[in-house]
Design a binder for these strands. Structure first.
Length: 310
DNA sequence: TCACGTCAAGCAGAT
DNA sequence: ATCTGCTTGACGTGA
C-alpha cells in the first residue's frame, strides 16, 4: 500500500500549478510557467520520497492551456528531457502517479464539441505520462459524467464514446464513483461492458451509495484491475463536520482512518487522501501505518539514501 | 503594495 | 434565474 495526496504541497515554497490568464498567453509565458511547474514537481516528489509518501496526483494545470487551440507551441519537445528526468525519479523510487482531469472532461456529453475538447484534454494528460515514460499502471481518473435526465442512455453513450478514444487514453483511463450521479454499481456495470478499471471513492460511496459495505466494495473493484493496471487505487477522505455532504475535511480523522485500515487489512491498494491540508494528513497517515504493527503493509522507498534530485 | 473582479471548459443541486 | 462545488485560489488590473 502506498499513501498519497493530490496536487498541492503546502510545505514547500513552490507551486506545481502556476498559471496565467488566457489573455496573457504567449510562448515565453508558457515556457516560464511550465519550467517553474516541472522544477517544483521534482521537488515535491523528492519531499514525498523522503517522507515515505509514494503516491501523488499530478495537477492538470502542469501545462496551462495545453489542450486549448491557442497553444501551438511544442512543449512536448521543448521539455522532453525534464519530463524524462522526472519520470526516471518516479520509477527509481517506485512512486505511483495519478492524474484527475477536472469537471469539464465529459466522455458521455451529448455535445460533440464537448466530447472533442474532452478527448484533447485527455490526450494532453496521456502525453504528460508518456513523456515521463511511465507504464500503464499510471492512471487518469474520471467520472462517468452527466446524467442528462436519462441515466441508461447516458451510460450507453459513455460506452460508445469511450470506444472512440485513442488507445493511449484508454489504456490509462479508470472510472470513479461520484457523489451525485453514478454509484459504484453503475461503474461496475460499465466495467463489465468495456473492462475499464474502477477506482473506489469512499466518501462518494457514503453519500451516493449502491449498498455495498467497504469490504464488499473493495472485493468488487479489486477484480477490475488487471496486472498491467497495477494495484487498485482508492480515494479516501473524511466528511467535514457540520458542512454540506461531500465537503472534504480540513485534516484527517485518525480514528476513522485507523478503523478503515483495520477493515481493509486483507486488501492491497494505493490510497489517495483527499484532505484539505494535503501532505500534513499524508504524513500523519504514514506515521500511523509505520508505527502500528497492524498496518505494516505500507510501502517504503526502495533505497534509504537517494541522490538529490536537484 | 494591495483590493478585488474575474478566470477555458459543464454539470447538478441548492438557493 | 443565479450561485456554488468540484481536487485547489490566485491572476492581473487599477488605484
Amino acid at each position: 500500500m502506498r499513501i498519497g495526496y493530490p496536487c498541492i504541497n503546502w510545505t514547500l515554497d513552490c507551486k506545481t500549478d502556476r498559471t496565467f490568464r488566457l489573455k496573457s498567453y504567449s510562448e515565453d509565458r508558457l515556457i516560464e510557467t511550465v519550467e517553474n511547474n516541472l522544477d517544483c514537481l521534482l521537488r515535491v516528489l523528492e519531499f514525498n520520497v523522503r517522507n515515505n509518501i509514494l503516491f501523488f496526483r499530478i495537477t492538470s494545470d502542469l501545462v496551462p492551456f495545453a489542450s486549448h487551440p491557442i497553444c501551438q507551441f511544442r512543449w512536448q519537445d521543448f521539455f522532453r528531457e525534464k519530463f524524462e528526468k522526472i519520470g526516471a525519479f518516479i520509477k527509481r523510487y517506485d512512486t505511483r502517479i495519478s492524474m484527475h482531469p477536472d469537471q469539464f472532461v465529459l466522455i458521455n456529453s451529448k455535445d460533440k464539441k464537448v466530447f472533442e475538447r474532452s478527448r484533447r484534454e485527455l490526450l494532453y494528460h496521456a502525453e504528460v505520462l508518456s513523456l515521463m515514460k511511465l507504464d500503464t499502471s499510471v492512471k487518469i481518473q474520471i467520472h462517468i459524467g452527466g446524467v442528462y435526465k436519462d441515466k441508461m442512455k447516458s451510460i450507453e453513450r459513455f460506452i460508445k464514446q469511450y470506444n472512440r478514444l485513442d488507445s493511449v487514453i484508454r489504456k490509462r483511463l479508470v472510472i470513479e464513483n461520484d457523489d451525485v450521479s453514478y454509484t459504484l454499481s453503475d461503474c461496475l456495470r460499465i466495467h463489465s461492458r468495456i473492462g475499464v478499471p474502477v477506482l473506489f471513492d469512499i466518501l462518494h460511496h457514503r453519500i451516493n451509495s449502491s449498498g455495498q459495505n467497504v469490504e464488499d466494495a473493495l472485493t468488487l473493484i479489486s477484480s477490475t484491475w488487471k496486472r498491467q493496471d497495477g494495484v487498485p487505487m482508492v480515494d479516501y477522505s473524511s466528511q467535514k463536520k457540520g458542512k454540506r455532504q461531500g465537503r472534504h475535511a480540513e485534516t484527517i480523522d485518525m480514528r476513522d482512518f485507523k478503523n478503515f485500515l483495520v477493515k481493509t487489512k486483507d486488501f492491497d491498494f494505493d490510497i489517495m487522501l483527499e484532505i484539505k491540508d494535503k501532505e500534513k494528513s499524508a504524513l500523519k497517515a504514514v506515521e500511523i501505518t509505520l508505527s502500528d504493527v497492524r498496518f505494516l503493509k505500507i510501502k517504503i522507498p526502495k533505497m534509504k539514501k537517494f541522490i538529490s534530485a536537484f
